[in-house]
């Protein structure tokens, strides 16, 4: 199916969707502030590259793949909701929540390995930024999973307010985008 863009007036944007974009813009500043501060210190102290070499690139890459795939499934849930296909919407929302669970398990394994090697949140400023950024991101992953579960239980199961699937999806995609930038910052750029 071909899709073309057209001029849409701002007044045509549903209130919920506009509000979610506003939330995302504010979240950009929250995560962006942390990321910019990290970049400033990374420029100031090149030796942080050595600290970054102790993070696991394969684990980070695996989690990137997991979040990209969960972004796909939540987009498919939104499409199914648009088509009023309740069963498919629920199926894809569950897949997305499963993606969040896998992400958190992989992150927990990483944390355990790093802490057991002495790389704790107080080891140095690099590790303080590492745990602050990935920890805040993990909290957002949990919040996204809870939001999707609630939308499923309160609305999708009853076949109403299906547009809320898109709202939860927008939030989830943002969580994915944050990770897209955290991965090269903390795992790849040594």
């Amino acid at each position: 199916m071909a899709h073309t863009t057209q001029t849409v007036d701002i007044s045509e944007v549903p209130n919920g969707r506009a509000a979610m974009w506003w939330v995302i813009a504010s979240e950009v500043v929250i995560f962006g502030g942390l990321i910019m501060s990290y970049l400033l210190f990374r420029m100031r102290y090149p030796q942080w590259g050595e600290y970054a070499s102790h993070t696991s690139t394969p684990m980070g890459a695996l989690n990137t793949l997991v979040l990209l795939t969960s972004s796909l499934t939540v987009a498919l849930a939104h499409k199914a909701a648009t088509e009023k296909n309740i069963a498919a919407t629920k199926k894809y929302l569950w897949f997305t929540i499963l993606g969040g669970v896998i992400f958190l398990i992989v992150k927990s394994v990483e944390y355990t390995t790093e802490i057991s090697h002495g790389y704790t949140i107080t080891a140095n400023n690099f590790w303080s930024f590492y745990y602050a950024m990935t920890g805040l991101h993990a909290i957002h992953v949990i919040a996204g999973m809870v939001a999707m579960f609630l939308v499923m239980q309160i609305d999708v199961n009853k076949g109403r307010n299906l547009h809320r699937v898109e709202m939860a999806g927008l939030y989830w995609h943002f969580v994915d985008i944050v990770w897209i930038f955290l991965f090269p910052l903390l795992y790849v750029a040594k």
């Binding site: 849409v8 506009a18 972004s71 999806g169």
Partner: peptide, 24 residues
């Protein structure tokens, strides 16, 4: 653009995002 459908939204929403990044 594709998963979040921003390319279908009014340009004002794109500018809101650009402003947030510009503030950073």
């Amino acid at each position: 653009g594709n998963f979040m459908h921003l390319k279908w939204e009014p340009k004002l929403l794109t500018w809101v995002m650009i402003f947030a990044v510009a503030a950073l």
